[in-house]
Design a protein around this nucleic acid. Structure first.
Ligand SMILES: [Mn+2]
Ligand SMILES: [Mn+2]
Ligand SMILES: [Mn+2]
Ligand SMILES: [Mn+2]
Lengths: 222, 222
DNA sequence: TTTGATTTTTAAGCATGCTTAAATATTATA
DNA sequence: TATAATATTTAAGCATGCTTAAAAATCAAA
């Protein structure tokens, strides 16, 4: 098994690659992991030698099959721990990510499977992220729409909120927005890319930074 | 907060110092932590500079007040995790120590206090070890007798079993010996320091290695 | 109390994973 | 297409925490 650093690299490569389906650039990775580009270059060589990523100088990196397997394994641990802390230990939405970021590297397969079993083999974590199964399989996911692609006047259900930074989802919790909340897009302000949504009959203005973290699906009106 | 290695050093110094109340020698620590004497000497200097131990060359080490505070904090995390895994996740007696050895270094005060609360602020872990409180206070402990100091014909209650190596307590579990089991010392064989005890009307021969890990209190006959 | 065994420390070296500064490659712009 | 801006890699260095081998201190036994 790779080190803690390597696990976090693989996880970050996986999630960045999901966002736009092409090789992940050094600087993107550096920004995400908050370390220097130089460190990324060095580590990329090591992960390449371990057969966990493909890497050509100046061309960015992509996960190999084995690299992806490990990334999903760490994501599984992360998401199961988050759900467990919320469901069992009563932590809040915004209190679990940083804990999970550490625990994910120090949990045996045996233990995480016990946690999985205790929770009844859940498919989604508290922020709507899919939980890979023991075998590394992701559950069937509904097609998600970024909130900034939504149309005025339509109604949507919140299905996914990126769980970091914690202040952000703490804020969403305070205004009453959770996974499965129903919202209506009231207005889109093009000059700052903010969006006004109605939630429980109250209007809330969400800045671009916040909007970027929210994913929804359209509600079929009937 | 110290690193993982430093936390384990402090914890080991604490437990070795409990056993015989004098400065802990380099080689004792090296054996316990399974690293070289040279590494112990180096780390001792660092912990001394951090004010966590007293250290004079060739004289061994002892915890300072601050060093002891940290050692107890890590022990608290270790023991609460062990109890939690057994009580909540249904792990066995012998499956929790190695997991706890890792988790103890990656659990915030906030999270461990939630676990403590969930368990109802327990005073002893599943192996009978006392759990330091949030404030670093150990619960009142009954006076424990090492099993090898016991007398033939007398009855005792098992109050403490050292939880490592796991094969050892796994064995004790299999023969039905647990914390609070009642046993009677049937025979002490001086040629190999083994002891025969009666447990649930069955005799079991315990080797010296096993005997050394068990602590009891005398049962008042009435 | 001197000698020899044992314990402990020092010295040198290595792996990991960072940093900053300099060099080099890529890309965008004119 | 030459040049300037940007992105990436290389180079050198540092902290941590180990290792083995050699040196030095302590302890034990005659
Ligand atoms: Mn998270
Ligand atoms: Mn992490
Ligand atoms: Mn333990
Ligand atoms: Mn540990």
């Amino acid at each position: 098994m790779p080190t803690i650093s390597k696990e976090d690299y693989l996880k970050s490569i996986y999630t960045l690659n999901l966002q736009d389906d092409k090789a992940v650039s050094t600087s993107n990775l550096a920004a995400k992991l908050e370390i220097s580009n130089a460190a990324i270059s060095e580590m990329s060589k090591k992960l390449y030698d371990l057969g966990l990523i493909s890497y050509e100088k100046y061309k960015g990196v992509e996960l190999t099959k084995e690299g992806k397997r490990i990334a999903l394994k760490i994501l599984r641990r992360h998401r199961l721990w988050e759900l467990f802390m919320i469901k069992v230990l009563n932590l809040n939405w915004d209190e679990v990510h940083d804990e999970a970021e550490k625990l994910e590297h120090h949990t045996s397969d045996f233990l995480i499977d016990k946690i999985d079993e205790y929770l009844g083999f859940p498919e989604f974590d508290p922020h709507g992220a899919p939980i890979p199964s023991k075998d590394g399989v992701l559950p069937e996911m509904p097609k998600l729409i970024p909130l900034n692609n939504c149309e005025i006047g339509r109604k949507y259900q919140v299905l996914r909120v990126v769980d970091s930074p914690s202040e952000l989802i703490s804020y969403l919790g305070r205004i009453g927005m959770n996974i499965h909340s129903n919202i209506e897009v009231v207005e889109k302000l093009s000059f700052d890319n903010s969006i006004i949504v109605m939630l429980d009959n109250v209007n809330h203005s969400l800045s671009e930074k916040v909007v970027d973290k929210i994913f929804v699906k359209e509600i079929e009106e009937d």
